[in-house]
Amino acid sequence: MQKTEEAREKLAREEESPGSDFFMGIFLMGFGAVVSYVAWSWPRPQGMTSAPGLFPFFLGVSLVLMSFALFVGAIRKRAHLDLKKHVRDSLASEDTKPTLLALSTILIYMIVLLNLLSFELSTFIYLAGALYIFWKQRLYKILIVAASATALYSFVFKFFFKLMLPGAGM
């Protein structure tokens, strides 16, 4: 029983994120307010009961109330006293660099490469680059894996399942 209580306390500590709750609370309050205003301003052809804005308005107001509660909870945990530290910790955390690297490779692949090149070429370039960054093996191994995976995807989806693949002209 004591262990269960300890586990519950540990979970509660892990769940605590007053810094991000503070910022999310402010952002969502603003967002909810905009949604409610926009939904309220929409036409109501047959009164409010069937108005297109009825449910979005209800959602916007709920979002404002809930994010206000989140914000107050963060203030109670004194999140506002140490905001600079929270921002600094978030930016300097050790997973920031791999996250940004992963994100950039994905965005380059999906937004740039797939719009310029065919699926096969862009996938091979992406996989070679991403595996070089994350897998950190010898170049010939990386190139073999990238080429094999690209060929497998193309064969399975394009030729076997007759699916149109994303790529130049998508």
Binding site: L131, F134, W135, Y153
Partner: peptide, 27 residues
């Protein structure tokens, strides 16, 4: 997982695009 995860990314693109062949779905 450093090897596996990059291999998953093209599957995400195929899955999102495949249903409607609509590039907007990838975004």
């Amino acid at each position: 997982r450093e090897l596996l995860m990059p291999l998953i990314v093209p599957l995400c693109a195929i899955g999102a695009y495949g249903a409607n062949q609509f590039s907007f779905d990838v975004y």
